[in-house]
Simulated assay, not measured.
Amino acid sequence: MNATVSPPWTYTLQLPHDPRAPGIARATLRAVMETYGLGELTPAAELLAGELLTNAHCHTNGPYALRLRSSSPEGVRVAVWDSDPQVPPGFEPRRGGGPPPSGLAEGGRGLHLVRACADRYGAQLGAGAGKLMWAEVTPASPWRGA
C-alpha cells in the first residue's frame, strides 16, 4: 500500500503597501499551515514570513506578495516578492551571511534571524523588476527543539 501523498501546493497573497498587510499575511499563513497539518512548523514559518514581510514593507514603496509553497520533506517555503531589485547585503547564501548586527545598529536583525532559523534561504532576481526572498523550514530544523 502507498501512503497518501498530498499534491504540491502554492498560495500567493498580493499585499498593498499598508502597515496592516504583514499582520494579514501572517494570519493567512497560520490558516494555510493549519489546513495542511503543518502546525508544528507554524511558529518558525510565521517568524520567517514576518521578517521577510517587514523587510519588504520598510524598504519598498510599492505592493509586495507572500508566497507559501510545500517543500520536501514535509516542509514549507515562505517567500516574499517586492519591487526592489536589490538583495539586502549579507542575505546571499554564498557570502555566508556575515556577522550579526552590532548592539547599536538600528536594523539588520530580521534577516540575521531568517538566516539563523531557516533550513535554507535565498533570493532570486525577477526577470523584469523586483526580487523574491525565500526561506524554508522542515520538521528536522535543528533549532526548533531548543
Rank of each mutant, 00 (worst) to 15 (best):
E106K: 05
K131E: 01
G97R: 01
P19Y: 15
H112V: 02
V78P: 00
S102P: 01
A105C: 06
A105H: 12
H57E: 15
D82H: 07
G39V: 02
S141H: 15
P88H: 04
P89D: 01
G98L: 00
N61K: 10
A105L: 10
P89I: 00
P99F: 06
G103R: 02
Y11W: 09
L68V: 06
A135H: 00
N55P: 05
A116V: 10
V78M: 05
S141E: 03
N61I: 11
G107C: 14
Y121P: 02
T35E: 02
V5S: 10
S141W: 04
S141Q: 09
P22G: 10
W143N: 06
Y36H: 10
N2Y: 12
L47W: 04
A116K: 02
T42P: 03
E46M: 15
P22I: 07
S102L: 03
A31S: 14
P43E: 08
A44V: 15
E51C: 13
A146Q: 08
P19N: 14
G90K: 01
D18E: 15
G103F: 03
L111D: 00
G130A: 11
N61V: 12
G108Y: 00
G98I: 07
M133C: 11
N55C: 10
L29F: 08
S70Q: 03
A123D: 01
M133I: 08
E40T: 14
P7L: 14
R144Q: 06
S141T: 11
A44D: 04
A56F: 05
V76D: 01
A140C: 12
R95K: 15
R20Q: 10
L53C: 13
L104G: 10
A44T: 13
P8N: 09
G62K: 12
V78G: 00
R94E: 13
V76Q: 04
D18P: 14
T28Q: 12
G130E: 05
S71C: 09
Q124R: 12
L38K: 09
T138H: 02
P99D: 03
P88T: 03
P93H: 13
A65I: 15
G96M: 03
V32Q: 02
I24Q: 15
W81M: 10
G126H: 04
P89E: 10
A129H: 06
R115K: 13
P7E: 04
A44K: 02
L104N: 07
G96S: 04
G37D: 09
E34T: 14
A79L: 08
G128T: 14
R120L: 05
E92P: 02
G122H: 06
T54M: 08
L13P: 03
L38V: 12
F91V: 04
S70G: 09
A118H: 04
T54Q: 11
H112S: 01
A129G: 02
H57C: 15
A105W: 08
R115Y: 01
H17C: 13
P7W: 10
E51Y: 07
L104F: 03
G130M: 12
V80L: 12
P101T: 05
M133Q: 04
L68W: 08
P99V: 07
P43M: 10
S102G: 11
W134A: 05
A56E: 04
T4H: 06
L132N: 13
G90P: 00
G62N: 11
N2S: 07
H17G: 03
E46I: 12
R69L: 08
